[in-house]
Design a protein around this nucleic acid. Structure first.
Length: 895
RNA sequence: GGGCGGUUAGCUCAGUUGGUUUAGAGCGUCUCGUUUACACCGAGAGGGUCGUGGGUUCGAAUCCUACACCGCCCACCA
């Protein structure tokens, strides 16, 4: 067997991936003999291209899934993509624009055709990328939110909610994106601070006595004044009591404004008088409803001003109109002043355009009734968040939940399953007459019998389909059809659903806690009567090395696929998991991935070493076993056992970074740096088998994190041994602690030996010995002499010594512990330097002793602290004193 | 305005219920090393009054409190 000295992931990963996919290793099915474990993927947008956030999110899920799979669960990771209404439509619209066309030019039907074509061509891009980074989803189950079966679920949910009066249609103020030309939910209009101005406008007033006075109102959006229908003051505000009975005239428009009083007006802010624009401000909208004001919509869909404003403003964009107005009002001396002001403005989460509050006829879901149960399950920890602080955030949002605007004025998505009777439907009426909600196209209006029906033009918010993801992906609802569109019978599907659902863990970023996680909990409880998942892991945001969120528009992204290309998917995954402490943000720079690459190379070379030795010595590895030849075997096994325990416990408690750090540390710093170094010149058959055992155990521990290299080496071991191994490492089981009769004293003594190596190496440095060979004199108790003889060879090699003599009388002690004292015999040394070091150490120990003494002299400490702590302190002090004496002696002798 | 998180070595971060840590890791810096697994390596060094001030305690990086700075989320101050 020829193993090259460098691991080259590029060659191997694609082949391994191929093998996995062909072997259907990641397909899970109902199997009553096994326990289920399931995760649904947060479906990436079909338009998605893998970014670091995806890599982080999916690697965490993959670690959990691979771990469970190895623990012999039926581990199902349900994959799929989201149709991403606005985002996808935008992409195809841009494509059309390149051809000089708009979607209106080609019509709805053709446009949808284009969208499906686009999806078929590019929609699997991100899926292939997920495969490339090793995501072990059950790819046979790939779902899409606009699949036929999935769409059935969406329709069913709309119907149920409508029938239960939880969906209604009405004219309300919503967030309107003038660029996407659709309504948005509150969550989709991200509030961001914007530098702007607070303008103080003067409105003329005709008082009861017929005088003309002025009032001043403050606004950040002067153009909305064209839609003003009132001014409001606080009823307590005596300054303006004179206003009652006067007439306020809206400048430019010359409309008479109502004067209303409302507690909502803060007398402290601005001038204490508010201009009220009921059709273009959420607060004013409420005021308008309350005080029965006139609602004047002044904007078109694209935020140009409409025919309800004076002619010279019609067709002008809102911001241009603002500038024009300011100029005009300035001329008329109707602007008192302007102040710089930071205001919060909603931005479209798809295109970042400032949204416009606008009244329009939309569909809404009543959320309060849905929230009740979803609050309970989280309060009672039936659904748990990791880290737990998100619980509060979730609950706070739930308590203040607002109704959800679900209609979107776009074409790509689930068409709203509503038909209006052209004969008897009246959109202004507050009843449901002439509204037909159905899953199939209805023929006649049930109210009047007319056959003139027209379907709602809008589609549903994308999240209205993704909130069903944990159960709709399994084929819910089950009652309605005999067979599913994938040919499987409904009964089978239902059984499978019962087996895997509720799912176990959801892994997601905090950004979609409200968009998605909260809504899934509500939908699942409502429609399946169960929680969708019991654990929610919320990971951090991926940032660059300056701490700025990675985003394409800022140009500070690191492309995960580039990292895969350069260093391999394993390196990408390893570094991400190593750096991602639970819940905290991940700061990345390209060099962070070197850590992963280097580690892979280390694994590779450890394997190379073990197998080259096995080959050279013609050792046959025919059985996977572990034997204690000497203390080194016990010592390293003990560490392996601890590593397995910690790793397992860490993954179970969602502390993934800790798991990988522990495995890494063991492999590199115990197995490679010590065990392999120790056995190098004593590579016996037992040691060979032990090495293979440890290697295999380590690979299994690492497999969830670095699946490719562990699979590769696993099959390499399989090929080059007579071991009876499973075909894939994922089928070979999770490592168990190997119980052996390990005598504690044996590895305690051995551990001291390891420590002695460290200390002698330090001394070599302190003495400035360079490459000088030394010889050692060791004084130890007689029953440890055999022990020393046994380990002499490797010990000399690791400290660069020629010989060790075991003596009974020692005249100089460079190092001591409770088992032995060591003298270094040297030809020459840098004594000045050493003296300095000794001085430093003497001071160090002196101060430690002082601290320790102070503690022990403190009667309260001795009295109140637990006994073992006090004992420990005493022995510490004892040890320090011994060291101090030794160092002082040494200093005297050596000088 | 409310809430949350952070502040530990030059950088990025661990440090789980206060005492086995004489505050650790990775990267970077410096020194030494090419002894046939690995220079994508090995051996070592330097570097921290754990944001600041109080408090609780025998004992605080760890718990409480106030403050400072940084970041995030929510909210209808026009």
């Amino acid at each position: 067997m020829e193993i090259p000295p460098r691991y080259n992931p590029k060659d191997r990963e694609s082949k391994i991936l191929q093998k996995w996919l062909e072997g259907s290793v990641y397909h899970a099915e109902k199997d009553s003999s096994q326990k289920p474990f399931s995760i649904v993927i947060p479906p990436p947008n079909v338009t998605g291209i893998l970014h670091m956030g995806h890599a982080l999110n999916n690697t965490i899920q993959d670690v959990l899934i691979r771990y469970r799979r190895m623990r012999n669960y039926q581990a199902l990771w349900m994959p799929g993509t989201d149709h991403a209404g606005i985002a996808t439509q935008n992409v195809v619209e841009r494509e059309l624009a390149k051809e000089g066309k708009t979607k209106e030019d080609i019509g709805r039907e053709n446009f949808l055709k284009r969208l499906w074509e686009w999806r078929d061509k590019y929609g699997s891009t991100i899926i292939n990328q997920l495969k490339k980074i090793g995501s072990s989803c059950d790819w046979q189950r790939l779902r899409f939110t606009m699949d036929e079966a999935y769409s059935q679920a969406v329709g069913e949910v709309f119907l149920q909610l409508f029938n239960q009066n939880l969906i209604y249609r009405g004219n309300y103020i919503i967030n309107w994106c003038p660029r996407c030309q659709t309504a948005l939910s509150d969550e989709e209009a991200a509030h961001k601070e914007v530098d702007g101005w607070l303008y103080y406008l003067r409105y003329p007033v005709k008082t009861k006595k017929g005088e003309t006075r002025f009032i001043t109102v403050a606004t950040t959006r002067p153009e909305t004044m064209l839609g003003d229908t009132a001014v409001a003051i606080n009823p307590q505000d005596k300054r303006y009591s004179w206003l009652k009975g006067s007439e306020v005239i809206l400048p430019v428009v010359k409309r008479s404004l109502k004067i209303i009083e409302d507690k909502a007006v803060d007398p402290e802010f601005g001038t204490g008088i508010v201009k009220v624009t009921p059709a273009h401000d959420p607060v004013d909208f409420q005021l308008g409803k309350k005080h029965d004001l006139e609602f004047i919509n002044i904007m078109n869909k694209d935020a140009t001003l409409n025919k309800n404003v004076p002619e010279n403003f019609q067709g002008i964009d809102r911001f241009e109109a603002r500038a024009m107005l300011i100029e005009l009002l300035t001329q008329k001396k109707l602007i008192e002043k302007k102040e710089p002001y930071r205001l919060g403005a909603g931005h479209c989460y798809r295109c970042n355009t400032i949204v416009e509050p606008r009244i329009s006829l939309q569909w809404f879901v009543k959320m309060k009734p849905l929230a009740q149960e979803a609050i309970k399950v989280v309060e009672q920890d039936k659904v748990k968040f990791y880290p737990s602080r998100w619980k509060k955030v979730y609950l706070n949002w739930m308590f203040n939940i607002q109704d959800w605007c679900i209609s979107r004025q776009i074409w790509w998505g689930h068409r709203i399953p509503v038909w209006y009777c052209q004969n008897c439907y009246n959109s202004d009426a507050n009843d449901r007459k002439g509204i037909i909600v159905a899953k199939e196209t209805p023929k006649k209006c049930p109210d009047c019998g007319s056959d003139k029906l027209s379907q709602d033009q809008d589609v549903l918010d994308t999240w209205f389909s993704s909130w069903l993801w944990p159960f709709a992906t399994f084929g819910w609802p089950f009652e309605k059809r005999e067979t599913r569109d994938d040919g499987r019978r409904t009964k089978e599907k239902k059984e499978e659903f019962d087996f895997f659902y509720p799912t176990n863990t959801l892994v997601t970023a905090s950004e979609i806690l409200f968009f998605w996680v909260a809504r899934m909990i509500m939908a699942s409880l409502k429609f399946t009567g169960e929680i969708p998942f019991s654990d929610v892991i919320i990971h951090g945001t991926v940032r660059d090395d300056k701490g700025i969120k990675m985003s394409k528009s800022l140009g500070n992204v690191i492309d995960p696929l580039e990292i895969v290309d350069k260093y391999g998917a394993d390196a990408l995954r390893f570094s991400l998991m190593f750096l991602a402490a639970s819940g905290s943000d991940v700061h990345l720079s390209p060099d962070k991935f070197l850590m992963g690459r280097n580690f892979l190379n280390k694994i590779w070379n450890a394997t190379r070493f073990v197998f080259s030795q096995i080959q050279n010595k013609k050792i046959k590895i025919d059985k996977l076993d572990y034997n204690l030849e000497d203390e080194s075997d016990a010592w390293v096994l003990d560490h392996l056992n601890k590593t397995i325990a910690v790793c397992t416990e860490s993954i179970e408690s969602h502390r993934i970074d800790e798991a990988i750090k522990t495995a890494y540390d063991f492999f590199w710093h115990y197995f490679c740096d010590w065990y392999l170094e120790i056995i190098k010149d004593n590579f016996s058959q037992i040691k060979a088998k032990n090495s293979v055992f440890i290697l295999l155990s380590s690979l299994k521990l690492l497999h969830p994190f670095t699946p490719f290299i562990s699979e590769e080496i696993f099959s390499l071991i399989k090929k080059n041994s007579s071991l009876d191994l499973a075909e894939f490492i994922s089928e070979s089981g999770w490592p168990k602690e190997k119980k052996m009769n390990l005598k504690p004293r044996n590895f305690a003594v051995f551990a001291k030996m390891v420590d002695t190596v460290d200390k002698i190496r330090d001394l070599r440095g302190d003495l400035g010995l360079g490459q000088q060979k030394i010889s050692l004199e060791i004084k130890t108790e007689s029953n440890l002499k055999k022990f020393w003889t046994r380990h002499k060879n490797w010990f000399c090699r690791l400290v660069n010594a020629e010989s060790i003599s075991l003596i009974d009388k020692i005249d100089r002690v460079f190092y001591q512990n409770k088992y032995w004292e060591v003298n270094l015999k040297i030809d020459s040394a840098d004594l000045a330097k050493f003296k300095q070091v000794l001085g430093k150490k003497i001071n160090h120990f002196a101060s430690l002793i002082q601290k320790s003494e102070a503690k022990l002299k403190n009667k309260k400490f001795v009295k109140k602290a637990p006994k073992d702590i006090v004992e420990k302190e005493k022995s510490k002090q004892d040890d320090f004193s011994k060291q101090l004496i030794r160092l002082k002696n040494l200093k005297e002798i050596i000088v």
